[in-house]
Amino acid sequence: MTDPQRRIRVLVAKPGLDGHDRGAKVIASSFRDAGFEVIYTGLHQTPEMIVSAAVQEDVDVVAMSVLSGAHMTLFPRVRVLLDEAGADHVLVTGGGIIPESDMEALEALGIGRLFGPGTRTTDAIAYVKDWIAHQRTQ
């Protein structure tokens, strides 16, 4: 059952110490233009901050932009903390400079699709919409 009132809520998060939030901002505004309600929390988010915000905001999706190379620790950490907080229904996805083999390894740990540099935002939007549609018909 899809309820027209029920919007897709996405937390766009920028973890880590690097100060590059261009990618995060681009995806945040594309998500808004796709009709999602996007919560953007700014730079330098710790996994604890991300999970706390995700729980309070009751989001469907956490989308992280990771450019620092720390994706192998950050994505699984957020996944684990979400599960511990009882938010195992939340999709963790994102993008950054992530080698194909790492993407596969992360997928095995319960992370959703990850998008490399040069991905079209429409692909990410379609992915999230499909995932939600699948979730909500269950």
């Binding site: 945040a28 808004r32 233009d33 309600e37 996007v38 919560i39």
Partner: peptide, 9 residues
């Protein structure tokens, strides 16, 4: 779009 960018946090 009916979407929103919520940046108060």
């Amino acid at each position: 779009s009916g979407g929103a960018l919520l940046g108060d946090r």
